[in-house]
Design a protein around this nucleic acid. Structure first.
Lengths: 191, 191
DNA sequence: AATTTAATTTGACAAATATAAAATTATATC
DNA sequence: GATATAATTTTATATTTGTCAAATTAAATT
């Protein structure tokens, strides 16, 4: 089940950014970056209560940015070495190139399909290009990729979806879902 | 007035991170990264209302991550090219190495000074090393860097701060604020 | 010009966050 | 073992945030 893991991942990424997405915590990271610090010291530098600083430090630690070490009376916090040595791009990008793409297409497509089709019939031809593409793609599925068709055959197949087969046939060619032979006599799916 | 500018900067940085610090917005960035998208499309993919998506898109735009362009009925959003091509380190680091450092030291020092000194007198010798250092540094200022002192002279000067001049003198040597000559007859500030 | 439609803005609300103050915990120093 | 002290946790509160639904705006198609 990659989706669960992906979601975990997503949250973890977001938390890293969220941890850095606060002025006080950015200051803390910058102070700590120069030399390790303890809670009280940071509190007095930033003029916030130790409790508040402690809270911020734990947020940063949970985001896997800081490490700490008991030192005399104090807990000394420091940046985990190399933790900032990464590109924003790497932090942001999810690795599932396929998954997301399919999720998205299906969702948008579903919406359009529900809106424009009813029991296999196309209710109307969408004006909007993005929706039209969904419709054309669906109609294209009715053709066999290995066969070529006469115009009349094409019309009949399209007419199962909608009466205005002429417009739809034109759009299929227009947007390159189908191609017409040079002599204009036969049609087939774009290979 | 560099501090105002620094603060602006600080907030802008934090906002960039904050913009990315939300799972929905991370998904949006990832979807947009692959190909430009419009609001409704994202809404249907992510199953959130158009209003919500619009809000997220404006957050991302304010963080200078997205650009948009009207296209047919739609507003097509895309990532500003190269915007993610930067190290986390560069995003986090503030450039004022001096400023911050002085702010911090003064703040912590001030707190210790107020706690341990009263009208120039040291109320007690701090147990804690970090505080002791602040105190020793302060006492060290009473010596002329160009002069050397007999032990008796050192004692007299320290006695102005606190009766237990012997301990303080020992700590000054201990922590290398002052050095004692080989013959043990003269003291001076660490050069 | 009228109509359609995507996008944005507004209003409302529940959830999350940043903060201080106080209580508690954990650990050094004596 | 008692005491001192930094750190953390808890409680409380004001602010910010994410979301939806509804109203409004802006713009393209008719």
């Amino acid at each position: 089940m990659p989706s669960l893991k992906a979601e975990q991942n997503l949250k973890a990424r977001a938390n890293l950014f969220k941890a850095l997405g606060n002025p006080t915590r950015l200051l803390i990271v910058n102070l700590i970056r120069l030399s390790p610090r303890h809670t009280e010291e940071l509190a007095s530098i930033l003029k916030l209560s130790p409790g508040t600083i402690s809270h911020h430090l734990s947020t940063l630690s949970e985001a896997a940015l800081l490490e700490s070490k008991k030192e005399q009376y104090y807990v000394s916090y420091s940046l985990i070495p190399g933790v900032l040595d990464i590109k924003l791009e790497e932090m942001v990008s999810m690795s599932q190139p396929g998954l997301e793409q399919s999720v998205e297409k299906d969702a948008f497509k579903d919406k359009v399909m529900r809106a424009f089709f009813e029991r296999g019939r196309l209710l109307q031809i969408p004006t909007q290009q993005k929706k039209l593409h969904v419709v054309l793609e669906e109609i294209a599925k009715a053709f066999d990729p290995d066969k070529s068709y006469t115009e009349r055959e094409v019309n009949i197949i399209i007419a199962d979806f909608h009466d205005d087969f002429a417009t739809l046939r034109r759009e299929l060619i227009n947007f390159n879902y189908m191609t017409r032979s040079k002599d204009g006599m036969s049609y087939r799916l774009r290979s």
